[in-house]
Amino acid sequence: MAKFSDDKLKKVDEIVARYPAGKQKSALLPLLHLAQDEFGGWLSVETMDYVAGLLKLEPIEVYEVATFYSMFNLKPVGRYVFEVCQTGPCMIKGCDEIIEYIKKKLGIGVGETTKDGLFTLKTAECLGACGYAPMMLLGKYFRENLTPERVDQIIDECRQKAALNN
């Protein structure tokens, strides 16, 4: 069963304390981020129920929120999630070609994960890097001014990191 470490529970308390007493529901989005990072990059029903318990909410209050926001994954994803922006300014700068290139290179479609569980490809709507397009969100950081060569480097970098951690 999913459970935060004592360290993370301290972080939970710290987050809840940012809001007025009795308004602990406000901590829901930050806590879902924390849970998603901690429990495999996605939110299972079990994880959401756990967060509901921490904040003394009904589980439905967590489900309805988790399903609303696009950053929460409700099914398992690969270790590295490529979220490629496809809105206007990125389209102008060739994001469609980048998405096609990633699909071919990894042999997956949008919304799919590679068999080795390393990569998931998602498309995203405007991520706020329009001047540095095309771009993707990978983990906590933006990867900008993408070219096929740059994509190759990023994929290699992820594979190397994964090999080191195994």
């Binding site: 989005l29 879902l32 904040l55 209050e61 926001y69 696009s70 950053m71 929460f72 709507e125 405007c126």
Partner: peptide, 19 residues
């Protein structure tokens, strides 16, 4: 936030801030 353009609208933002 967690990925919702609509939360830039001030009342949606406040709803979101309330969890």
């Amino acid at each position: 936030g967690a990925g919702a353009y609509i939360c830039g609208e001030e009342t949606a933002l406040l709803e979101s801030l309330e969890g």
